[in-house]
Design a protein around this nucleic acid. Structure first.
Lengths: 213, 213
DNA sequence: TTTAAGTTGCACACAACTGTGCAACTTACG
DNA sequence: CGTAAGTTGCACAGTTGTGTGCAACTTAAA
């Protein structure tokens, strides 16, 4: 006499897969165009628009979940940076974020959409704090530019990274190299200084898989 | 016996003013949001939506005129740069564009809208050619970074300028300073080198009005 | 095999926006 | 002043998008 209330069936496995499929599709679609329609996302996931509403209350709920998903990865990356040298820390942060490029692109795209400023700001807060801390340390140690106030420089670095990631090429190994060098440049290093730094720390640009050369 | 065909009245003066008003309103509105509605633009200009269609065939015609308007100014700026030193040329170009910031912002915003990629590409072509030329010269003379291919570096410089202009603060004198320094940084100079360069060429950052100190 | 979870396609209502037609009004200009 | 240019507000058709209700179906799980 199992009542229908406390003994509800477990959600079907294919339903869970479909839900993940929607998130993946939204990932691709929104990175390309943050205003992609629900219908486009559902089709991309191989589902009907109607079915999507069985998994998410509305468009906002879907976007919110994407943002939170990305935020988790972001915080993990930010926490993993512990270099004493601010220049190295910045380079490593940029390189590490590039490895999450697929996720970064959605966040970066959504972050530019006025409709979700608050959510993305909250999600990006830990990362932003990390950048500000690195910048402050670097300025105190006189290894980063001091002609720009720390908050402004942090912002500039963030925008530079976003720009390179979202607007230059995509996912080529050369692009990753470029992103790291662009960040170091905007942080105040000359291109030769950046080059020397990266030569001294080859692991920063090493392929994630074959890190143990 | 003046026929109604060859002796049509001149357009009314207030109509011309209204047309200019619409362009000005579109300027403001589209810089803020490239997808601002016709209604929002017309209201901002103090006209009804219906009246706007008396001046422009459709939304595209309005946008096209804005783009052409900006293109003219852009070409003039690009043509005015003739410094032998590529670093100085870049700095001067960035500073000169900043003086057109109000116009730059619309173009930059529209340029990010997929619907008008072609028009803006055409409008920006001369400016882009100028940047590529400066970059090539600078690399040949070994005063700009050579670890990035000329077209890529030119693109990077353009994106950096766009980012600073559209996403950092706005219209403060400090922002202009920042834009120039950001461009020089991304071009490969260390912040101290950029600082020295600007100190050696104070006229670059001089206020446009009081250029004769 | 039974059952309910999940999906589908359709029909709605709703919202925001574009572009046009038209009658009535106001106003600059000859 | 008279006239036509310009404006206004409204109605209308068309587009694209969101979110819901519902009957009919497929299918995973008990």
């Amino acid at each position: 006499m199992t009542s229908p209330i406390d003994a509800a069936r477990r959600p079907r496995r294919d339903a869970l897969e479909n839900r993940a499929g929607i998130l993946a599709a939204a990932h691709v679609a929104l990175a390309h165009d943050p205003r992609a329609s629900i219908d486009a996302i559902a089709r991309q996931a191989g589902l009907s628009r109607r079915a999507l509403y069985g998994h998410f209350d509305d468009r906002d709920a879907l976007v919110r979940e994407l943002v939170e998903q990305g935020a988790t990865r972001f915080n993990a990356v930010a926490d993993s940076i512990d270099d004493a040298d601010a220049r190295v820390a910045l380079a490593r942060l940029a390189a590490a974020l590039w490895n999450e490029a697929a996720h970064v692109q959605v966040l970066a795209a959504i972050a530019l959409d006025e409709a979700h400023l608050e959510e993305t700001a909250t999600a990006l807060a830990p990362l932003r704090r990390t950048v500000v801390r690195i910048v402050r340390d670097g300025q105190d140690a006189d290894v980063l530019r001091t002609d720009v106030a720390a908050p402004t420089l942090a912002r500039l670095i963030e925008e530079t990274a976003r720009t390179v990631i979202t607007r230059i090429d995509a996912s080529s190994p050369a692009a990753r190299d470029l992103a790291v060098r662009a960040v170091l440049s905007i942080a105040g290093l000359s291109w030769r200084q950046a080059d020397a730094l990266l030569a001294a720390h080859p692991e920063i640009l090493a392929t994630p898989k074959a890190a143990s050369a």
